[in-house]
Simulated assay, not measured.
Amino acid sequence: MAKLHLFDLDGTLLYGSAAPVEISRQLGLVEEIGELERAFAGRLLPPPEYARLVRELWADLTVEQVAAAFDGAPWLAGIREVWADIRARGERCAVISLSPNFFVERLLGWGADATYGSRFPTVPFREPVDLAGILAPAAKVRIADELCAKFGLTRADCVAYGDSMSDVELFGALPMSVAMNADHHVSDLASHTYTGRDLREAYELVRIDGFGHGNR
């Protein structure tokens, strides 16, 4: 049975949305972030350049707006309950996202053992983005390995939950994965597929079937 559960954020824990979209909504910049998101998804913008442009777009961002974006985001139901169950079983859970760390780390308060996001300056911004701290999809595998080493586990003890191209490398590296409201890039690789808005239902696929394979 999995002992380390690794969750993507955008499109996975957030239903049909992403942290940058929810943050930009607070600034009235939904159209502008939409253009950047499409370019990023289409691989027209590499992660560091995307981050640099987002930092410029959010020049006036405040801590209060980040909190409002987090609180008002379309989260899946049952996240805290699932993470509480994982920890009650003596297992671990972490969030690995390409989105800004100042948003992702708020999930520590919901029961995640660890969170990882692209490293942005402290809000309100006073410095440029350190491009060396911006995560790319390959970083998810590296971080998974680091967490395994920290907790005395191996990749065979892990399950990944994700939805899109940024999760492909991680899905390919782990024996069990759940495609969450996903596109074909990950659903074709996943051990299980889930469509819906309740993390408890997706988590149940893992609990019932262990490391068995076959889409649901």
Rank of each mutant, 00 (worst) to 15 (best):
E31N: 14
E32C: 04
E32P: 03
E32R: 14
G34T: 11
L36S: 10
L36V: 13
L36P: 04
L36A: 12
F40S: 14
A41M: 06
A41N: 09
G42R: 12
R43Q: 02
L44A: 07
L44S: 08
L44I: 08
L45F: 11
L45M: 10
P47T: 09
P47N: 13
P48S: 06
E49V: 14
Y50A: 14
Y50C: 14
Y50I: 15
A51D: 00
R52K: 09
L53W: 01
V54I: 03
V54P: 04
V54W: 09
E56D: 12
E56P: 02
L57T: 05
W58R: 04
A59G: 07
D60V: 04
D60T: 06
L61R: 00
T62V: 08
V63E: 08
E64A: 05
Q65A: 05
Q65G: 09
V66L: 05
A67S: 14
A67I: 13
A67H: 13
A67K: 07
A68C: 07
A68N: 08
A68V: 11
A69D: 09
F70M: 01
D71E: 08
G72Q: 10
A73P: 03
P74D: 01
P74G: 04
W75H: 08
W75K: 15
W75P: 03
A77Y: 11
A77C: 09
A77W: 15
